[in-house]
């Protein structure tokens, strides 16, 4: 029974997965309908994918699909960033206060990055911007891969805490 569950998740598993993906998409887009839509599409794509492929981690697959869908959404949105197009297609576009909001979030994250030990910042940049592996980063900076992993984990913790705090404060301000 449990083996069958691994390869063919039950309805409630899909619901849990969908909920986790929606939480991820909402955190990124701050748009409830869009997040639900992305979660829905993700589950459909994941179901389709697992019919012809062996899936080791359904969660890993789902978050990968969701990440691509969010990126695709941003990509489609970007060209419309000028004001004329924005007035015509207002519903699809970032509102001016949303742009200000994004800048404030960027500034909050910059503060965290600036407060980090330079080595940790360097490690994290290599991963997030250059997509380097722990092995590669370790080789470049003279660290062992485990230490690199620890730096990335801590950098993420700091950034995540700051982002949550910033979002909470911001949502308070909006109400």
């Amino acid at each position: 029974m449990s083996a069958a569950r691994c390869t063919h998740p039950m309805a409630e598993d899909w619901a849990d997965l969908r909920q986790a993906v929606a939480r991820y998409a909402l955190s990124l887009t701050r748009h409830r309908d869009l997040a639900e839509d992305i979660a829905q599409q993700t589950v459909l794509k994941a179901i389709e994918y697992q019919q012809s492929n062996i899936v080791i981690s359904m969660h890993a697959l789902a978050f990968r699909i969701a990440g691509n869908l969010v990126r695709e959404h941003y990509r489609r949105q970007k060209p419309l960033a000028d004001l004329e197009a924005a007035s015509e297609l207002a519903c699809n576009n970032p509102l001016p206060d949303r742009v200000v909001e994004d800048r404030a979030e960027t500034r909050a994250l910059m503060q965290v990055l600036n407060a980090m030990p330079p080595l940790r910042r360097d490690v994290f940049m290599r991963r997030r911007i250059e997509g380097q592996s722990c092995q590669e980063i370790g080789r470049a900076l003279g660290l062992n891969p485990k230490a690199v992993e620890k730096h990335i984990t801590r950098a993420l913790m700091d950034l995540q805490v700051a982002r949550q705090r910033w979002r909470a404060r911001h949502e308070e301000g909006n109400q």
Partner: peptide, 15 residues
């Protein structure tokens, strides 16, 4: 989901 969103946030890339 929360932590991955923090990692993937476009604001982080810009920062």
């Amino acid at each position: 989901a929360d932590c991955l969103a923090a990692y993937d946030a476009p604001a982080l890339g810009k920062a």
